[in-house]
Design a protein around this nucleic acid. Sequence first.
RNA 1: GCGCCCGUAGCUCAGCUGGAUAGAGCAUGGGAUUUCUAAUCCCAGGGUCGUGGGUUCGAGUCCCACCGGGCGUACCA
Length: 623
Amino acid sequence: MTSGRSEQPPRAVGELPSRVNFRASLRAMFAAALEGLAADGVIAVAPDDLPGLLQQVRESADPKHGDYSGTMAMGLAKRAGRKPRELAAEIIRRLEVVPGYAGLFEPPGDPVGPGFINVRVKDEALAAAVTAAVADDRLGVAAVAEPQTVVIDFSSPNVAKPMHVGHIRSTVIGDALARILRFRGHQVITDNHLGDWGTQFGMILWGWKHCRDEAAYAANPTAELGRLYRLVRKVADAKPEELAADPEAAALAAAHPEAGREVLAETARLHAGDAENRGLWEQFMPVCLAEIERLYRRLDVSFDHQLGESFFQPMLAGVVDDLLASGLARESRGAVGVFLDGEEEPPLLIRKADGAFLYATTDLATIQWRLEHWRPDRILYVVDHRQGRHFEQVFETARRQGLGDVELVHVGFGTVLGDDGRPFKTRAGDTVGLEALLDEGVERAARVVAEAGRGEMDEQMRQRVAETVGIGAIKYADLSQNRTTDYVFSFDKMLQLTGNTAAYMQYAVARVEGICSKGRVDREAVRTAAGCVRLEAAQERALALALVRFAEVLEDVEADNRPNLLTAWLYDLAGHYSSFYDSLPVLKAEGDACSSRLALCDLTGRVLRHGLGLLGIGTVERM
RNA sequence: GCGCCCGUAGCUCAGCUGGAUAGAGCAUGGGAUUUCUAAUCCCAGGGUCGUGGGUUCGAGUCCCACCGGGCGUACCA
């Protein structure tokens, strides 16, 4: 969507850039070749077609087909009425004489099969790129040429209720995207759009007035508010099976048959500015915020802003008035809605018949406010895919309001399921609390580390490793999944020490650290040494090629907001490192080979650590 | 009813705007260690990509129909 255009232009002949993106360079060279053919009337390429054609330059599926393959000749030939292989050959003739090509890539030779153009990176260029990356604090990854301002809206819990497993995906994916886009060089603004104004506060207010435990509140306000929320929700919902299991709730429900309506009334009083409820809200908010803050600290997630629904509340009437005045919205059945797809399709409701505002109203106000104050090029909403239609409607309404050319993107994701294929619940059928989930992950990680670990770890170290591995496993399991599909949550799978898991990756980092500490390697010296990395063995070359693809992968992650592309590549990289490490001596290698391989180890460790860091996952020196 | 998403190895999942012989991990079977951390590496078996049509040089990917599952569909967020 966004990347690809903003990458480095082709380099002039001669020196290598210090941060080389082979794919971006090759694409630029293909662009020159195709433009040349178009200029000579051999093929017709509209400027709009070019990016799509260049997407067809990608890493080869099989190493025997070289490092990159171009597949556009087949499609182009059809349109031009040419034989595909002939056209491919013509592209190749143009490509290999593009300035700079010969410095980076081998001549492609003849087209293969129906017209594949296979390109191999020159060994010297690859070695030089890795050498440069070793000395580079950005690990060879160039920043985008045209940085954008990107707002990322994620996590967004309802603050008066305990955070649960449902919040983990938005939080973890949003945080990873924020870190990745920042590293890419964009100006990222993260905003936690808290649910701090809804019915859940009505529940707490009602609970406070009817069944508070002052002593408990004084001792632990968070716990007491959590208790009130859980209790009142059952009383208000009044589901027989729930009440049967909870005598206290049942007694309250019997004493207050109108509890459900009273809760809504408390909410309405809060919204209407009732002094008592407003005062209580102001008293409870810091407590609620402290509670979620503790979890964010543990998850190592932070936000630039936490502008909740309450913040936008004063703007809502104006939003409705503006939409009414512009004719986009109108009254219907007592409510006010924006009719986007004609009369038959449900409108986007922005005011209820009772005068209350809705989720959509707040979202529209939020867009306006963000555009006015932050002037973003893009806003990402990392929210459950079930809200896809809601965002479609909100975005369309915003566009019709003429809110500028900001790119509004719903980054949706699937549901976390249990073993039974149903949404993840405890055995008792409750949603799983986020804190309990993290605790269990850490506890299980501690057991795994104790069994497999190398010993000689003090208690403090053991704790830190367990926390890093446990939290990392949970995050990684989520991020390594294609975000659009549901996935089955399994502690056993995510804490496995092999396969595509955080622990495997963290272990690979620890092995690099091990080799460096064992050899008493001065890593600064490795990085600043003028010596060039040498790529002789196949394993060295494969590792090097994986390393320099870091930039390409981050570009792809941004294009589709898909962190799982980063985990897949990290896993691939760790695999290449393991093969390399397994088959070639490093410390015991002679002379130049030793320093070259140490440089590869050092870079691999840093890239793995940085890559995991971009996912919000920590590493340890030993495990 | 309508709309969106999904169906890939025994299990959990990848598969990048259609590209080469559909890939991993787990599980199963075999092999490698006087260790630079074996929490590793190497090899093998395992598939009519839900079914049936279509589009084309080429379909897991695009189109149509059907089967099966999930979600959403006017006053919750």
